[in-house]
């Protein structure tokens, strides 16, 4: 009669408290665990493999190089957890970089440049979200469209030529505080902020519910359209910041800045254990995923291996990490 009797699995679980839940917990977070292990492994191997690796200079360089991808990946993670995808981030980096430079140069006020970069990013996000929720165009198609439109706009306004960006706002991208790159400090702060947002606020939890089952979320009274628009806006804002940081780092805003970045960003998110089907993933995992990609890049430079191998390896790592996860999940469900 009672449910406990008719479900032996449940009973077994109750009989051995702690063990099975712990095992399941591990299985569920296996992809992050796998990637974290890979990160440690690459770190240790590099420590032995190259005398330059463990120098402060090199480590901070790695930190600086991975920061923009990781910052943009934070927003992308929210989009993917909500069941969407944002292909436009690379183009937003380009347009916001030139917008920052042109606005700062025209007004002689770097602050206006910062606002312009964030406004371009946020606005693109709002447009993406609106097209997806109101016009009901699928996120892939919508952001594929804005990817092209936004890149075209960047080329159009600059007539294809790079813009000077060497005011104090460039400090955000190129500066250091006590030798630590400002970009990296921003990444740490933003990761903490987004993490708290995701686990400790209603809006963050709604992102997970919408991504896991949008219909159920709507029937439970959630504003699904708002949640979706919100995550695309956050993604756009962070991509706008990414453009600002890259321009600052290079003292120069090229309209082709961020070309192809969307793939690195999405790879970092997936590597970090976020499910493309939505509803699952953690912000910590995304940072680990981005860190692993940064470390691999560094490894190829230090070990003097052709950059082409780098591209191949990163692709393989994504496939292996995601493959291992779906293999585990299948084993769990059987």
């Amino acid at each position: 009669m009672s449910d406990g009797e008719s479900h032996p699995i449940l009973r077994r679980a109750e009989a051995t408290p702690g063990l099975l839940p712990a095992l399941r917990q591990l299985l569920r977070e296996r992809r992050e665990a796998t990637v974290a292990a890979m990160l440690v492994l690459v770190f240790v191997l590099l420590s032995f493999g190259s005398p330059f690796f463990l120098t402060e200079r090199n480590l901070f360089n790695v930190a600086r190089q991975l920061s923009v991808v990781a910052i943009v990946a934070l927003g992308q993670a929210l989009v993917i957890i909500a069941g969407g995808i944002d292909l436009s981030v690379g183009s937003v980096i380009g347009l916001s970089a030139v917008a920052a430079a042109m606005a700062a140069n025209a007004t002689n006020s770097p602050a206006v440049g910062i606002v312009a970069a964030l406004a371009v990013g946020g606005l693109t996000g709002v447009v993406n979200g609106t097209l997806i929720t109101r016009a009901r165009i699928n996120p892939f198609i919508t952001t594929l469209g804005t990817l092209s439109v936004v890149r075209g706009a960047a080329l159009l306004v600059t007539n294809g030529s790079p813009q000077r960006f060497d005011n104090w706002a460039a400090f955000l991208g190129g500066g250091r505080i006590a030798n630590v790159p400002v970009q990296f400090i921003l990444l740490v702060l933003l990761a903490a902020l987004i993490w708290i947002f995701a686990v400790r606020t209603r809006w963050g939890r709604d992102v997970y519910a919408v991504g896991d089952n949008a219909r159920a979320a709507r029937l439970a009274g959630l504003d699904v359209k708002f949640t979706r628009t919100m995550v695309f806006t956050i993604s756009g804002l962070l991509a706008g910041l990414g453009g600002l940081l890259l321009a600052g780092m290079l003292s120069n805003a090229n309209p082709n800045l961020g070309l192809g970045y969307e793939l690195d960003v999405i790879a970092a998110v997936i590597l970090g254990g976020v499910a493309l089907t939505g509803g699952r993933g953690s912000i910590g995992g995304v940072v680990i995923g981005a860190a692993l990609m940064g470390l691999l890049r560094n490894a190829f430079v230090l070990l003097n291996v052709s950059g082409y191998w780098q591209t191949i390896t990163i692709g393989l790592v994504v496939i292996v990490a995601v493959g291992a996860d779906s293999f585990n999940r299948k084993a769990e469900e059987d």
Partner: peptide, 27 residues
């Protein structure tokens, strides 16, 4: 399955989905 549960979320999250509408945004 299609319209009720959020399958990959916990019992806790599923039960509070609607309650949170009227709770403060800070959990």
């Amino acid at each position: 399955k299609a319209a009720g549960i959020a399958p990959n979320l916990s019992v806790h999250e599923n039960m509070l989905l609607s309650w949170r509408r009227t709770a403060p945004g800070w959990i």
